[in-house]
Structures are given as structure tokens and as C-alpha cells.
Amino acid sequence: WEVERLVFRVPLDDGAPVPDAVTRRQSCSTAIAALAWVPHCAFAFDVSVGAATGDVLYPASLVGEWRCERVLTAVEGDQTAAEGAWRALGGGTTPFVAGRAETYETRFVAPAAAATYRFEGRDVAGVVLDRAFELGKRRGAGGRGAVSWDPRAPSILRDGDATLTVVSRTSEISEAGFGFDELVRVDAAAGGLIGGAARVSRLVRCKRRFRRAFAKDGRRVVEGLEIVKTYRV
């Protein structure tokens, strides 16, 4: 198996104070019991895991608005899962077809709490992606409701009745380039045959890597590669 993240949260809620050592032993035996229940070709994911702290930091020079051209270049594996992830992360209702290009506005803003990175030997204040602005612009008129994002809780993005929560994150910023790797839990109405008030949680990993470049006419641009993977939950 390719297990990239395995989380167990073990409730010990009988109310009695439990010494640490006993808690660990009980957690361990419960975890082993849970593992025995994991079906083949699947891994357990605790959907109650909270949001990751902090946010992805971008170079200060990115502050302000940009026009982003995005091209879907390749899809492998389960097409339905890939399309679901793509729609959940902002793809909207437009056709999910390799080779398709879309253009939307995006912007970078100062984070709620200043954060710095090292650049040419100095500490420089970085900026963050305005996730609500980008999602709203990308969805355009086809949006499924209000998009909201609080820069003080940057790992949570609400999109109509769906919530995207970054549950784990790594990011880097250096003179060679910058980027991130985020594991995102998508909570949304089940729809389809389940319907009603039922909710489902899906797990999507989104990695982006950027580098600075120049357009043919010499203008500065930023080029990026994105890889989105889905996982059985």
C-alpha cells in the first residue's frame, strides 16, 4: 500500500482521569483494532482532523492582482474522482477536458499576521493568496453560492454549502522558487443517490510549484505546475 497519511483519534470519554501511560496503551490497542478493520486498498482517514495552522507564504513582489492562465494538461486514474476534485477546488461547471485553458484574476495580499522569509540575506515580509477572491473569480457567474475566507483562519475556505479545509501543509519559499503541498478535506452535500442532508468528506492533495520567468516581450511572469491527487477515504 501507498499510505501517505494515517490518522487515528481515539476517544477515551468515560470521564475518569487516566494516567498518560495507560492512555497511550489503550490508544495503541484501539488503533490496532481499527487497523484490522481497514479494508483492502483503502486507508482510514479521520474526518474530524482540524485545520492546519499558518498559510502558504509567497514572495513580497507578488502582492496585488495577476491574470492567471490555467491549462489542464493530463488526467490519470479515476476520471470521476479527478473531476470531482477539480470542481471542488475551483473548476466550477465548465467541461473537464485535458488541454482546456481558462483565465481568471487572482491576487496576493498581506497576511493577517506578518510572516517573513529570507531573501538575499534579509528578512522580507511575505504575502498570501486571497483564496476567496481567486475562487470567486474562477467560478464567475457559475458559482454555487457565497465564497468566504477569513485571513485569520486561512486554512478554511467556504464555497456555498461546501467547506475546503487544509488539514496539513508544507510550503517553501526560496530564491530558486516557491510552492506548497496541501492536503485538503472537502466537505460537501453528498448529492446524487444519497442526497438529502447527507454530507461526504473527500480528501485531495494539491501541490503547486512556481518559478519566476520572463514573457517573450520581457515582462516578468510567474510559471507554475500543479498536481492534484485524490485518495480513497
Binding site: R67, C68, V75, E76, G77, A85, V221, V222, E223, T230
Partner: peptide
């Protein structure tokens, strides 16, 4: 993973 999708991104100043 059950699926993977690759995209290219390009940011230009409007």
C-alpha cells in the same frame, strides 16, 4: 492515489 491531474499555471500582470 486514485487519480491525478496536472495543470500548468501562468501569472501575468493585468
Amino acid at each position: 492515489p486514485t487519480s491525478s491531474a496536472k495543470s500548468t499555471l501562468r501569472f501575468e500582470r493585468p
